[in-house]
Design a protein around this nucleic acid. Structure first.
Lengths: 210, 210
DNA sequence: TAATTTATGTCACCTCATGACAGATGACAA
DNA sequence: TTGTCATCTGTCATGAGGTGACATAAATTA
């Protein structure tokens, strides 16, 4: 890895840290790009060469965690049912986060806290989730052997996304708490959902029951 | 109702219609406030006296539909279980929308289509949803007789929000399709969820099973 | 060292959004 | 009808977010 690339990573991390620091102390809206850039000693223009927007820098850590989740899901064995694969991937994500450098973990926690207290960022994070949602639906449909346009995969992903949101919401208090909460939520889900609910059955068309 | 108020309503609707029209033809980002204001023959400054932002005007119709839902939920009898109340309120909302003036319905549909094809607005709509989420959780907790911080009400609302998203997603093709989709989704939910899943039981604390 | 690539800074520009103030217009009472 | 008052509106000025163009400085490669 050359000097050039190392410097880029360094600048990028410095921008993220400076931004999170300012956002958390002065507030997200009250902080300007100029202030962030000034703290890292780069021009404001350079900021936008690293991040496409103010929101982008704030959500870079959450976006990373999403990527981790996607990767974990892809690594789950084909034999697992959709919901099992999703929830195991979630556990893997939390574990991966906990295994990271303290520096990275701190960034993640700061971003979590910031997002929680900033409605605009909460919305942005939801957008990130929704952008992945279609990929998730496609993956679930593949595992179920059904079509992506079918209702069931959408339903499964939708339920799971909801679970993820609840965990994420509790992540403010640290990754340990988040891991516990994940267990609780999954337990609750097991108790609420019928066995095999996430698997396609012979009669997929709804019309007979009512 | 005086002339002044009538004019205000008129201007407001004109701004919404002009905005939706331009957004749908030229795209959301490509359309400027100046263009919207010019089409209605008001100053750009006046636009911001009716709407707090560009997003606000685009999401005014969705925001209205949310209000309808909240009102419908409040009107549900106390005896209904949380999930039943939520889903019936949803049905009421769709029915209310279908019963509106064609002009209003058209606005709603245009907004739906616009939101669907504009990621930034998708995020905004999610924000609207999340703003209500806490109220929903509180309402469900009240009906369950549990605490608002408890996991179950959050879970119920989360699942339901997911269902709502699926319906909403299909609302692009018209309110009739959306009503059908709602039925399908609720049927699927009934098939997937255990009876009484949305009611608090004696043993709420998870620890025994695993 | 010379040539090439690439990151950065500077400058200009546009759009979104807000505050301040003056003028126009509807509301209302005499 | 007229005068007063409240309110809506337009104009102006300002600041922040975001982008394109171009020159410069630095790192890579030969």
């Amino acid at each position: 890895m050359g000097l050039r690339e190392r410097k880029k990573v360094q600048t990028r991390n410095a921008l993220i840290d400076a931004a999170l620091e300012l956002f958390l102390t002065r507030g997200y809206e009250a902080t300007t790009i100029d202030q962030i850039a000034a703290r890292v000693d780069v021009s404001p223009r350079t900021f936008f060469r690293y991040f496409s927007s103010k929101e982008d820098v704030a959500l870079s850590a959450p976006a990373d965690s999403q990527d981790i989740f996607l990767a974990a899901l892809a690594a789950r064995p084909e034999t697992e049912s959709p919901y099992t694969a999703l929830s195991q991937a979630m556990r893997t994500m939390v574990a991966t986060l906990r295994g990271k450098e303290p520096e990275d973990a701190a960034r993640f926690m700061k971003a979590r806290q910031l997002v929680e207290e900033t409605p605009a960022l909460l919305a942005g994070q939801m957008r990130l989730l929704m952008e992945n949602e279609q990929r998730l639906v496609a993956e679930v449909a593949r595992r179920q052997g059904t079509d992506s346009g079918d209702l069931l995969p959408q339903f499964v992903v939708s339920v799971f996304t909801g679970l993820g949101m609840i965990c994420y919401h509790s992540g403010t208090q640290g990754l340990d708490v988040m891991a516990e909460r994940l267990d609780d939520v999954l337990t609750l889900a097991d108790r609420s959902l019928r066995p095999g609910w996430d698997l396609a059955t012979a009669d997929t068309s709804p019309s007979a029951t009512d």
